[in-house]
Design a protein around this nucleic acid. Structure first.
Lengths: 200, 200
DNA sequence: CAGCTAGCTGTACATATGTACAGGAATGTG
DNA sequence: CACATTCCTGTACATATGTACAGCTAGCTG
């Protein structure tokens, strides 16, 4: 064995859980949360069936942790992205950057659908709502800074509206026949108009 | 028997299918599409298990028809609503009417969640996308007429943005702890600002 | 090295689920 | 009234699924 077994066990313990969680996200994105069975996830992750029940108390627990995993990642991502967006100097630039993000997200259709699926899961399970709320707040904060930089008279409201529009457009992208990333690209002029009108 | 058996059979044939479809929607809204099993739907509808397999070829068929049912209803509803919205005379009035609609929709949380669930189903199953597209187009047309009445310089784009914002806000409403209808109400000032900026 | 602990996995089992289908009930037909 | 037809339902069965758990392996300890 190339590395010590102790080390292997340690990294595998952390890695294994993530590995299973990410397999679950792929299953969700590809086939919906109804497809999240211990067996489907185990196969996707390339781990034995026993592992999924070892790391997660139950199917519900797995789904819950998957949401928390996504929510946490997204909060971090938006925190960083928010910093970058503060530097925009025109409505058009902000719109372009946000559409770039949407296109990037839509490129991985499976991951993108998984996020919406988990959001719905939060709609049904109150214990998941706090994580969902944090996720949502982080997204809005990331845009609010930029709207502030652009001199919006009400950055929080404008950020809320811009994020809502992006989420709504994103949702629409999912049910489009053609390439989701291309569909997202088509919304560029629309978002430019929105932000110009709000901040201009 | 108060009515002739012929008549009863006829209305029951039409009624029974709808009855099952609507039970399915309640199950979806309450527990997600993973909960849509023949047995759960049959129990919710108060019909024997055999009925669900008699009227629908399979579980997938049931889900497909549920989406088509919702999509068709929504297209009709938006067509009518679009007529009414054409008469608005100010951005504020349009925003208020649209928020009223959102509040009304959010009041039936179960039905509202069901719509989002079915939308995701369309994201995963290409054969459902046409119905989803029609639904989405109808929603946008219903607002485009009003934006036109308000003298928007680009009614189609503005309608697309307003609808996207409403859909995004609606999605956010679902994961709120408090009363969804109340949460929807809180978005009234935001939507007023959006439409005033776009059409004003 | 013997024994111990902790991490992990294969397997088994009760239950849930999709679905087929035989047969019953109601209606139409001669 | 006998028969055919159509609509419907209870039941049965193969399969899928969640989950418990016995036992295995690898490393640690004395």
């Amino acid at each position: 064995m190339p590395i010590s077994l102790t080390e292997m066990t340690e990294t595998a313990t952390a890695g294994r859980r993530e590995q299973i969680l990410e397999a679950a996200l792929r299953v969700i994105g590809r086939s919906g949360r109804q497809a999240v069975t211990h067996r489907a996830v185990a196969e996707e992750a390339g781990v034995p069936l026993g592992s999924t029940t070892y790391y997660f108390d139950s199917r519900d627990d797995l789904l819950r942790q998957a949401l928390e995993h996504v929510a946490t990642s997204e909060v971090e991502r938006y925190a960083k992205r928010g910093e970058e967006l503060r530097s925009v100097t025109s409505p058009r630039e902000l719109a372009d950057r946000l559409i770039d993000d949407l296109v990037a997200a839509a490129e991985d259709r499976v991951a993108y659908i998984a996020e919406y699926e988990l959001w719905l899961e939060a709609g049904q399970r109150p214990e998941l709502r706090e994580a969902a709320q944090n996720w949502c707040d982080a997204e809005q904060r990331s845009v609010a800074g930029a709207m502030d930089s652009l001199g919006s008279s009400d950055p929080a409201t404008d950020a809320s509206l811009v994020v809502a529009a992006i989420d709504g457009l994103g949702e629409r992208v999912l049910a489009r026949e053609d390439d989701p990333a291309q569909a997202a690209e088509e919304f560029r002029p629309e978002l430019r108009r929105l932000i110009e009108r709000l901040a201009g």
